[in-house]
């Protein structure tokens, strides 16, 4: 099918979203004196059985929570950080019993692996990378990609973990001569990796050979785009971007997510869907997460908005609870749940 001009999703959507599409399943509070910075879901092996666990990160502590029978959560492991604060959790698919975290002040200075020693189940942390880390992403098949440094001094590295999270192998990818800001794996092509750069290019690598295959310049209307998801279909590359720096326009309102189609052979691209805030909603994107065909964003207004990229419109709005703005939103990788967090450590789990 030919792809026609950009559709604008979310305008006006007030009468089309379904508030019941998000149902509260459980909630818990992470008691910590520091600010809550991230939340994630992962599988953790306990006594030979894999359980879907929740990881919470505050600036000075990362905790692992296991589920109890009654939709309650119990804290089972805690790792403390006294020197450099935690910035984000870096989930690594296909690795059990290992959590990666990025630490730093404004920028990432360290990536650490958090694990438990098998003998006494005591918490350990191992420094994996240090330096001026610009981007990091966990990839399938137990791999972690990071870019360290800028411009010509940049190194793009893939680290592969053993199944138990232990020994590792490293490989370099050919760096582009521009700073990589975000990475995304390409569904449908297991050895392809995308990156977005500071000068609005999307770069494509071959993970197996380390080759830099293509640079695609995308529309300059949105600077510093973040790539959340990419998939290849029918010879085209579909890329979901968010635009944290986008300004509100009269025509479209506030664009939050954009679906872009790229022909990797010719480096030509075209926007096909723009997800904007529903009428009556103000603000910009603070942080977002995309899983399959659903995109969720925390807005500067403190509300969470969810878009269905196949329907092409906003399907749910989650206003602040107990007068407290939302600050975190993540899709669970273990089930179809949405994890929503507030700065004081409250975590709410919604079924989508």
């Amino acid at each position: 099918h030919s792809i026609e001009q950009t559709d604008v999703a979310g305008l006006p959507a007030q009468d089309t979203w379904n508030p019941s599409s998000l149902q509260l399943v459980s909630k818990f509070k992470n008691p910590s004196s520091s600010c809550s910075v991230d939340v994630s879901a992962m599988w953790w092996d306990r006594a030979g059985a894999q359980e879907p666990c929740i990881v919470t990160a505050c600036e000075d502590v990362v905790s692992l929570w296991k589920p109890l029978d009654t939709l309650q959560w119990e804290k089972v492991h805690t790792w403390h950080f006294t020197e450099v604060p935690v910035l984000q959790i870096v989930p690594v698919p296909d690795v059990y019993n290992l959590i990666c975290v990025a630490l730093g002040n404004l920028e990432i200075r360290e990536i650490r692996a958090l694990l438990c020693s098998s003998g006494d189940e005591s918490e350990k942390q191992v420094l994996l990378k240090s330096g001026n880390i610009k981007a990091v992403l966990g990839l399938t098949k137990r791999r972690l990609v990071s870019s360290i440094g800028t411009f010509c001094s940049q190194q793009v590295q893939i680290m592969t973990f053993a199944e138990d999270g232990g020994s590792k192998d490293e490989q370099l990818l050919m760096p582009p001569d521009e700073t990589v800001m975000t990475f995304a794996e390409v569904q449908g092509i297991q050895d392809a990796l995308l990156g977005t750069t500071t000068v609005n290019n999307i770069v494509i690598w071959n993970l197996k050979t380390g080759q830099l295959l293509k640079k695609v310049h995308i529309d300059d209307s949105y600077q510093a785009s973040v790539c959340h998801r990419a998939y290849s279909e029918m010879g085209l590359l579909f890329v979901v971007l968010s635009h944290p720096c986008a300004k509100e326009s009269q025509a479209f309102g506030s664009p939050v997510f954009q679906l872009l189609v790229i022909n990797p052979k010719t480096a030509q691209s075209v926007g096909v869907l723009l997800c904007c805030l529903p009428e009556g909603q103000a603000g910009r994107l603070l942080e977002g997460d995309v899983k399959d065909h659903v995109a969720a964003a925390v807005l500067t207004s403190g509300t969470i908005a969810v878009w269905d990229l196949t329907l092409g419109h906003c399907i749910a709005l989650l206003p602040p609870v107990s007068n407290q703005n939302w600050s975190l939103v993540k899709w669970s990788v273990t089930d179809s749940h949405l994890l929503a967090g507030q700065k004081d450590g409250n975590i709410f789990i919604y079924r989508y």
């Binding site: 030919s2 001009q5 950009t6 071959n206 050979t209 295959l213 022909n263 052979k265 075209v270």
Partner: peptide, 23 residues
């Protein structure tokens, strides 16, 4: 704009670009 603006499409783009790119 439409896919016609994107130029010729190849289902094997990844393999083709890998064979053309410098090692």
């Amino acid at each position: 704009c439409s896919t016609a603006d994107l130029g010729p499409i190849s289902l094997n783009w990844f393999e083709e670009l890998s064979s053309e790119a410098p090692p």
